[in-house]
Design a protein around this nucleic acid. Structure first.
Lengths: 140, 140
DNA sequence: CTTGACCCTGGACCCGACTCCATGGTTTAT
DNA sequence: ATAAACCATGGAGTCGGGTCCAGGGTCAAG
């Protein structure tokens, strides 16, 4: 049996897609399993063949991830994009994410304040006895 | 064979230790495996027996964790505490942690700015076409 | 015709910090 | 005497987001 790989002018193998989108091959397959990417066309021999739009879809996922969205949330976002949700839905997701980010910042800032206070109190000189940092961890 | 559980006035079984320290029993055993807690004494039948100081040690771990230290870092901190490190070492660890926290806050704040910008641009009305949030994820 | 670069699959493994489980022994309260 | 509550062990499972591997098929270049 002899097969010819029929690649239309613009379609991509998984390797080229991954390269163009800036992710690893395994990541593409992983996104497919997670249903963030639709099942691609296949050549006669089973190779995945992607339309160039897939590059944009992966970049979408990556940018959303960089903004702090989880893959589940990105799934929802892509669903709204694909099926035609409303701006209100997208905005609601964004605002919820914003609140989560704010909560994280808040939490880190509270930690930061404590840590800074401890660091400032500690002379950094001498052995560990009466180190205010250790003390504060040791007692209430 | 009949054994009596010899609990000196102040020593604790793992359950009571866990309860007083505010963690689960499994967490105590986990900390022991991680060598954050020394191997405890045992009764004749193999039950772990803890001195009351162990409560403080677990609280130490918890407080350090709440301040953002990893268990590995806490191991180091406890080592300094136990073996007698210097204030300089403890302070250095604290300052490194402070830098990490600052980096995280920075990162989150950059994300926050982008997200806020997008949210503000989106009217939240109508179908998803030309949604500035989706658009920004779709293009560069 | 062979070599190397590509692709396929299913499944295991990674990180951190637990948490849960099965199976069985011990202690305590009724 | 017996049940409930505790404890022991070793090992597996959880979460998220990948990453890697073995054991194959396939394709393009020389």
């Amino acid at each position: 049996m002899i097969h010819l790989m029929i690649e239309t002018v613009t379609s991509l193998t998984i390797g080229k897609l991954a390269q163009q989108a800036g992710v690893g091959i395994d990541t593409v397959r992983f996104y497919e399993r997670r249903r963030l990417l639709p099942e691609p066309a296949r050549t006669a021999s089973g190779y995945r063949l992607y339309a160039p739009e897939s590059v944009a879809r992966i970049r979408f996922i990556r940018r959303a991830k960089d903004l702090g969205f989880s893959l589940d949330e990105i799934d929802t976002l892509l669903g709204l994009h694909d099926v035609g949700g409303t701006k209100a839905e997208v905005k609601a997701l964004t605002e919820r994410k914003l609140e989560q980010i704010d909560a994280k910042i808040d939490h880190l800032q509270r930690i930061r304040t404590v840590l800074k206070g401890l660091s400032d109190q500690c002379s950094g000189e001498g052995d560990i006895s009466a180190c205010p940092i250790i003390e504060s961890l040791t007692h209430d």
